[in-house]
Design a protein around this nucleic acid. Sequence first.
DNA 1: CATTAATTGTGAAATCGGTCACAAAATGGC
DNA 2: GCCATTTTGTGACCGATTTCACAATTAATG
Lengths: 247, 247
Amino acid sequence: MTETRVPTPTLERLATYLRVLLDAREAGLETLSSRDIERFCGISAAQFRKDLSYFGEFGKPGVGYSTQQLIECIERILRLDREQPMLLVGAGNLGAALVGYPNFRAHRFRIAAVFDNNFVKIGRPFGELIIEDIARLKEVNAQIGAQIAIIAVPASAAQEVADQLVEAGIRAILNFAPTSLKVPPHVHVRNVSFLQELAVLSYHLAQEPSPWERDTEHALTDGCVSNQRAANSRRTRTTRKQTGARR
Amino acid sequence: MTETRVPTPTLERLATYLRVLLDAREAGLETLSSRDIERFCGISAAQFRKDLSYFGEFGKPGVGYSTQQLIECIERILRLDREQPMLLVGAGNLGAALVGYPNFRAHRFRIAAVFDNNFVKIGRPFGELIIEDIARLKEVNAQIGAQIAIIAVPASAAQEVADQLVEAGIRAILNFAPTSLKVPPHVHVRNVSFLQELAVLSYHLAQEPSPWERDTEHALTDGCVSNQRAANSRRTRTTRKQTGARR
DNA sequence: CATTAATTGTGAAATCGGTCACAAAATGGC
DNA sequence: GCCATTTTGTGACCGATTTCACAATTAATG
């Protein structure tokens, strides 16, 4: 609340709170308590209050929070209170899904231009926009002044695109390509990785095999043993216990 | 590394390591050290070693890790070593991007069926699949036996879809709808929220305004003051310091 | 106006995740 | 075979985040 940097998890949750509040306002609720928030999105009431405490005091003891006022405050904190033009690079399937994504507007994000390097696509309409030549990135953004860009190109092209975006004055990148971008320190990057999310789910499934699988599969306990040194030396250091993949 | 639960951040990073390893194998590198990994994806060498230590020992001191062996081990850990059929619900733009997503196959994920509730779409081709009636979810999955599903429908329909998926035996859900799903405890959910990611980026931009904006805008320090009680009572509790949004 | 019930904001404690540093292991050179 | 060099695996430390618990505040009731 006084001088601390705000933890990223707090920022992420703020967006969730905002969504809940918007729904609540839609439903005509004028105030919400932290316990209501917990019911609606599963984030604990204490967590919610602690998160808000980084920014000030917004509630009334005994009453809760004014839906309308808290919406306005969170929107200001997150800079969602003004139009934000964005650049989209990559006019493929994913790009098409993004230009058609209806929820951007509620948060005042707007895709202001689309770029691709495929000369067959350049000049064609894409949603309500015309696909621009990626070579004109800097030139076009001199007009638009976008600070945020979305990368929706294959991994092999992503780094080059990122470099061009930085060159064009972009300071924040939402990256859908499965690759680790290298950018100067003043540029923020957030990665969205379907594969990563699926991998985490897949891991958890493996931990608790489904009933019909349990008796035909024993791979959970064999499988990934230590390989190399597994069956030989090592394990002599201190009191090496059961080496190998557990669980 | 003996009985601890594996932290989720570790699981997420595992997917990144795998990507790096796959690229390295492609490039003909037979071994990699933890410092190489750090160079390629920015995750610290110590972090990498610690992450692996949850699962066993995979490297050779003085040498590094066999690319091929480590790929195989991580694939086993993440259950990426066998085909995983998935159900996709929602045959809109996003669904189209997902059925066409080329990277699923490298990790053996496969969209085995697509569902929608729009009778105009049902029966039409969608990529290489035919759109099925959502009402046939359970019936169809009795054949497929998928444990993972992807929700790519509007938020308003997401909870109902989730309920039907659980009913159809699904145990893991990748949710693209901006809503908090309620599912039984044995079902895992991961949310993908563009808006949340953009909101975090937007916040950081607000913290460090771009040069050309700095002298025309002063909104950073005014803006979201505490509202309610801001200018009146309160602040009497202990030694309440400067109330209101900072920064 | 006093009492009760609800709810906030926040220090303090607990938990969790990340970094460091170093002993142990592997390799290459001589 | 021995020494120098590299790199692993991990315990110990440290910082960040979450949870807890409670004093303070508000509103409602009689």
